[in-house]
Amino acid sequence: MWLLFLLVACVAAALSCAQLCRAAVAVARATGPAPRPAPAPVPDTAAPDGSAAGLTLYEMAYLSGGPHRLADVVLVLMAQQRRLLLAHTGWATVVDPVGQDPVERATLSAIGPDGQRRIPAIREALVADEAVRAVGDRLVAAGLALPAAARGLRNAVRQVQGATVLALLCAAAAYATAPAGEDRGQLLIWFTLPLILTLGTLAVARFELHPYSDWATDAGEERLPGRPGFTTFTPSSPAPVAPLASLMTLALHGPRALTDPALRAALHSSGA
């Protein structure tokens, strides 16, 4: 019986480590060593004329959490400027049907002519919209974002971590079900093989690939706040209601970092 547990642990470890290696190779191929020019800023209401020295809020959001994070940023931005109403039940209602940039206009189109829609549906419509894809395409072309073929590194790391836990559980099960008289210490030694494979792979990944990102390349990570090489931008004119610091926090860390409980409840209740 213990051989069956050992087989399960070894197969899970081998498959998950192979998947992580495949993801790492895809990332390496996508992130060439040659520097590429910075992308043209995407116009947003934090910098109405598009004159930003570094990344815009939309670009920060995309590099930090992909198109779903970008969708959250534009929804909160419009809500803080009183052009959308985000209810804690997860509904968005249009107050001002005039978009100030292509992403805002896409948001209004995603809400539809009724002027009200569930936030998850808006988010999914925005992810597929050309205006949001254009942000990602420019970042990919500039070498700051990973192309679609190179995504999945974070999930591959989680799979190896899961295989490690599975190996420990299989070892415990084999130990508990070992027949009387079996050398249980010798039995457990066999389970060090999948553990060495998974833990060794995780150690290499931690050293070579961390931070694990499905969106930003190393160059993109360096352009984000808190990393060397980050260039801070200053809005050419202050946004009247939307606090820049709050929006940057959302762009970089997601809805859980919002301090406004109403906005946090709206995004969380909608599955964010």
Rank of each mutant, 00 (worst) to 15 (best):
M1I: 05
F5G: 02
L6K: 10
V8K: 08
V8N: 07
A12G: 08
A14R: 07
A14H: 12
C17T: 14
C17P: 10
L20M: 14
L20Q: 09
R22I: 04
A24R: 13
A24K: 10
A26W: 04
R29T: 05
G32N: 08
A34V: 13
A40D: 14
P41C: 11
V42F: 15
P43F: 08
P43K: 09
A46L: 15
A46F: 13
D49Y: 12
S51K: 03
S51F: 06
S51L: 12
T56Y: 10
E59V: 06
M60R: 10
G66T: 07
A71H: 10
D72H: 09
A79E: 00
Q80F: 00
Q80R: 14
R82T: 07
R83G: 02
L86P: 04
H88K: 02
G90K: 04
G90D: 02
A92Y: 02
V95A: 10
D96M: 12
G99H: 01
Q100S: 13
D101G: 04
P102Q: 02
V103Y: 04
V103H: 00
E104Y: 09
T107R: 08
A110T: 03
G115H: 07
R118G: 09
P120M: 04
V127Q: 04
A128R: 07
A131M: 01
G136Y: 01
G136D: 00
R138K: 10
A141Q: 05
G143M: 02
A145I: 01
P147L: 00
A150F: 06
R154P: 03
N155W: 04
V160G: 08
V160I: 12
G162T: 14
L168Y: 09
L169V: 13
C170E: 15
A171M: 15
A172Y: 11
A178S: 09
P179Q: 12
E182T: 11
R184V: 10
L187Y: 11
I189R: 15
W190D: 11
W190Y: 11
L193Q: 08
P194T: 06
G200E: 13
T201C: 15
L202F: 10
A203M: 13
F207D: 10
F207N: 11
F207K: 13
H210C: 02
D214P: 08
W215Q: 10
A216D: 00
E221W: 12
L224E: 05
G226W: 06
G226Q: 05
G229R: 02
T231Y: 09
T232P: 13
S236F: 05
S237Y: 11
A239G: 04
L244Q: 06
T249E: 15
H253S: 15
G254N: 01
D260Q: 05
A262P: 00
R264D: 00
A265E: 06
L267R: 04
G271V: 05
